[in-house]
């Protein structure tokens, strides 16, 4: 397989395991590229990419932008602050206006689930979902799995724990789909108020006790508490959350299991993870960030192959 089975990256759900494998193999190549003295390739010199961020983002936006520039694509940045969406323009009109400037690919972050899928039906462009509400964040899941693969090799049979706010997390959902497609086993842990009632219907087990969960896993992915997406108070205080679900050095030292620690960032130090743990040898948080660029280069490179220049806007 040397081409993706999809025309857009809307979510992990639509990918085949072979697609994920192809993205990983392509990312291996780009990871080597970004560690060369000249960290750039001319692959996408004739491609223009618009990064549309209708929700705040720092690291994902920077990571995409860097990936695009490393591939020599022309890059257009657009964020909600400058947007005409606030003036009442529809999403389709906003995007079509940008596409009229001859843009080939759109990377979009949007606060609403399904926004990327909706856009892919309505506009003539390749779409990369950079996070849509609590639905999916496929490149984050790909880079997480890729980072786990670097440490543990094949993902099949690996035990991965996701800790935190599962209800509001697109990272959790995409990670679950990605890990399952690659044969890993997934458990989630967090306050019962932040675990969806039907989570087990998508093949995930729930372990409410953090210690037991950590004793079980090969990898623990500590999610950030998404206060901005919670419409009511799901737990009494951050302090109390930290007491029950925070990963501290003391807890880490008391568990006889050498698991790897991931965090999608940004970290709330002292809430879901303490500084000593985040900066410890077990943590591969900064490797995730580096791999993020390689994974996004791979995704954009593979999707660029799907652009039909004759019909492109």
């Amino acid at each position: 397989m040397d081409s993706l089975s999809v025309d857009h990256l809307l979510g992990i759900k639509q990918l085949q395991p072979e697609d994920i494998d192809l993205i990983f193999r392509t990312a291996d190549h780009f990871k080597e590229v970004i560690n060369r003295p000249i960290r750039k390739v001319p692959s996408l010199r004739d491609i223009t990419i618009a990064n549309l961020f209708f929700e705040n983002s720092t690291r994902t936006k920077l990571s995409f932008e860097l990936a695009e520039k490393r591939l020599s694509a022309d890059v257009l940045n657009f964020s909600a602050g400058q947007s005409s969406l606030k003036k009442g323009e529809t999403l389709i009109d906003t995007v079509n206006n940008i596409l009229a400037m001859k843009v080939d690919m759109v990377v979009m972050r949007h606060p609403m689930p399904g926004a990327a899928m909706f856009l892919s039906r309505e506009v003539n462009s390749r779409i990369v979902n950079a996070g849509d509400g609590a639905h999916e964040h496929p490149t984050q899941a790909l880079l997480d799995s890729y980072s786990i693969r670097e440490v543990h090799g094949d993902l099949a049979g690996k035990k991965v724990l996701i800790v935190g706010d599962i209800t509001h997390s697109r990272v959790a959902l995409s990670n679950i789909f990605c890990l399952q497609k690659m044969g890993a086993e997934v458990k989630v842990c967090g306050p019962p108020t932040l675990i969806p009632k039907y989570i087990e219907s998508i093949g995930v087990k729930v372990e409410p006790n953090l210690r037991k969960a950590l004793e079980w896993c090969d990898v623990a992915n500590m999610l950030r508490i998404q206060l901005e997406r919670q419409r009511i108070q799901y737990f009494p205080s951050l302090r109390e959350y930290s007491l029950q679900y925070g990963l501290t050095k003391q807890l880490l030292d008391s568990i006889d299991n050498e698991f790897t620690i991931l965090h999608p960032g940004p970290i709330n130090r002292g809430v879901e993870i303490t500084t000593e743990v985040a900066d410890s040898e077990r943590s591969i948080i900064l490797d995730q960030v580096e791999n993020g660029v390689a994974i996004r280069m791979a995704v954009i490179y593979l999707l660029a192959d799907k652009i039909d220049k004759r019909n492109s806007s």
């Binding site: 759900k13 689930p113 849509d132 509400g133 009632k197 039907y198 219907s201 998508i202």
Partner: peptide, 14 residues
């Protein structure tokens, strides 16, 4: 609210 809403990340109406 059910398996489909969970996999779509949409808030469910129980």
């Amino acid at each position: 609210e059910g398996p489909t809403s969970t996999s779509l990340g949409l808030r469910g109406i129980p």
